[in-house]
Nucleic acid binder design. Structure first.
Lengths: 248, 248
DNA sequence: AACAGAATCTCAAATAATGAAATTTGAGAC
DNA sequence: GTCTCAAATTTCATTATTTGAGATTCTGTT
């Protein structure tokens, strides 16, 4: 049903995902172990990425991020089609709410996290940009579904091999979401994690969701209501930023 | 002789290279044409990159850079093992010399451009980070060769299938480079392009080159001398920044 | 010098990628 | 609403590429 995915390319990006602050260099041994590949195959991925300047060989057998990856990232930041004001808006909301805030875009597989502003506390809930959330069990997913016409919702379920029964089960929730203008999540997707989400609507379509999220204990009724209000104001501003585009 | 390279991964990065300021979106048609693939294969690469969040689907058939690419780029900028002061140093040199300035690292395939500071003029010579230069015909390549022990130089030629005769031909040049402490290029690699390069030497090894480059007409003897002097001073400072590391 | 472990290379077998052709989608005309 | 058609997406037999076991090379230690 779906376009087959190039598995080598996925693995190459999986390898890049192994870098983090605590691991600024990669060896074939780490790649082989983490991605469950042979040592020879892991080495070949690293050698390929080095040949492409995506990685740089620090010394024999040890690789670090390379200049091309940095350049492609800068290019992505300059060209990606998000409102210019999105990150600043998220930062402002985060300061006002004192919780983490994020924005998601619709994809058929689920809401895609495209920007985050993490709460300032030493330890807080975070999500990585590029993460795709489940559609049926998250506030963001339900907002996107609530914004679709019934036929589009049905086609979505068919396209993603989701049982019509599962879709029918959330229809009452979607009704409530449309009435309230925001969606809540209290542990439905992740235990002990709450979220309040509102849609950014441009030309009758939900083009983004923005959400405040954190631990359940921090999200009582008053916080929820305050968050929903502030998120809605921000969403209205963002919708004006987006305005009419050729994406109709 | 060398580790085989994964061709699918290379093609995926070739596809990413098609974005630029004038082209912020990609279609399968463009990818197919530019990379000489079938329409179906081009679509599959785009779908793969979209599934990996490296691209984002703007609408059916149209793709833009995605959040994961931006994130990986930021990660690369944070983790890549360059001296922290490198870019500032290049910027300062550019201002002093009023020419473009760049830094290269050694790879067996040739000098890899890892940082650039482009001259302020509306039109000036530039190079893209991630570009690998030829080894024998560039000032940077000759500097790296000049800094290798004769046996290492011979092994390099064997490893890269370079004829020993070609290597022997540049030996007198390398001798001159070692005596002067810098290397010149006046159209040897690219017609009408001149470069002055100096090595950044740490623990007896040439770990970087820094170069000023521009059109031939702007690089008279006085400019060359002035550039060499300023580049050498900067190289000495950078070498101290690098200092003793575990890269011995 | 010898040795050992890690990194790199080789190549036959297995698997995945490719592209021609079929199918689906969606915009525009009526 | 239906129909048309170009573009996008999917299918599947064939071909090319990828994989990993094992061989070879490299390098640090003694």
């Amino acid at each position: 049903m779906a376009t087959p995915i190039n598995l080598s390319v996925m693995k190459a990006f999986d390898a890049l995902e192994l870098f983090n602050e605590a691991r600024s260099e990669l060896t074939a041994e780490v790649v082989a172990r983490e991605l469950r590949l042979s040592h020879a195959t892991a080495h070949r991925f690293l050698a390929t990425l080095e040949a492409a300047s995506v990685l740089t060989a620090v010394r024999r057998g040890v690789y670090a991020p390379g200049p091309r990856l940095a350049r492609l990232g800068r290019m992505a930041e300059e060209l990606a089609p998000l409102p210019a004001s999105l990150q600043a808006t998220l930062d402002r909301l985060r300061q006002g709410l004192e919780e983490s805030v994020m924005a998601c875009r619709y994809t058929p597989r689920g809401p895609l996290c495209v920007a985050v502003s993490q709460a300032d506390r030493p330890i807080s809930v975070n999500i990585r940009t590029g993460t795709t959330l489940p559609m049926l069990s998250t506030a963001q997913g339900r907002l996107f579904l609530a914004g679709l016409a019934p036929r589009d919702r049905k086609n979505w379920a068919i396209g993603q091999s989701v049982a019509q029964a599962a879709l029918a089960e959330v229809e009452p929730l979607l009704e409530g979401i449309r009435a309230e203008g925001h969606a809540l999540n209290r542990g439905d997707n992740e235990p002990d994690i709450a979220a309040v989400s509102v849609p950014v609507v441009s030309q009758g379509r939900t083009v983004l969701t923005i959400s405040a999220f954190g631990t359940l204990g921090r999200f009582g009724p008053e916080v929820q209501e305050r968050a929903a209000r502030q998120l809605k104001e921000a969403a209205a501003e963002l919708a004006q930023d987006i305005g009419p585009t050729k994406h109709t």
